[in-house]
Amino acid sequence: MIKAEHLLKTFTKNEKKNKKIDINAVDDISLTVGEGEIVGILGPNGAGKTTLLRMLSKLMKPTSGLVSIKIGEEEITDDIEVKRHIGYLSNNTKLYGRLSTRELLQMLGVLYGMSEEETEKKISEICEVLSMENFMDNRIEKLSTGQTQRASIARCLVHNPQVYIFDEPTLGLDILSSAAIIEFMKKEREKGKTILYSTHYMEEAEYLCDRIIMIHQGKIISEGTPTELKQQTGKDNLRDVFAELIEREGIADEH
């Protein structure tokens, strides 16, 4: 389980020439994602999704607020310890092009404090699940987009994390590759993992998510199961729900 309490992140932005404005990229967001649950974060560009996910995975320090994860009865708040249990993937987490996938995974095994056998076992398991046998030893820079994305997933799998945080994992992928990722998330949910992810694809969110959190300008504007959100707005698909909610906020979508 991952929990965020009153997260706030303030950036100072240069507005025009002589003005500096403090902007709350994430403005007092609290959320909880339980075990065996997939929660989708939806929102227009610049809504604060990436900042929120970065803080949740401890890449960024919140201006105020707390992030913690719970494994069994144990609550963990220490940055480094939390990172140990999180698999984070975004478009900015590129892989070392000059290493092979196998070398990368072996290195990660050590850094996550796994034994050599443990790592090797995990690698061959991942290799089979993601069918990566034929390019495991090629340099990552030589791989195709789909192969690279699979290598990226392998990267966040290797330490068998309890919590997955994915920032737009299917962006720019072909149907086959994104279907593979969606299948992967479903399987992990069945294993009782906690999954939080952001996307722009409404159909995908509707199909996959147990709950959806809509954010706009750093704030949660609505939260619930896809069905609840539809009832709330009286619309019959998520795309319209999204548009309706943003409109209710009284601000035109920049998207």
Binding site: L59, E81, K94, L95, Y96, R155
Partner: peptide
């Protein structure tokens, strides 16, 4: 430049 910095920051490394 290669975008691997964020990757390494996800690791439990100070």
């Amino acid at each position: 430049e290669r975008g691997t910095l964020e990757t390494i920051l996800t690791l439990p490394v100070t």
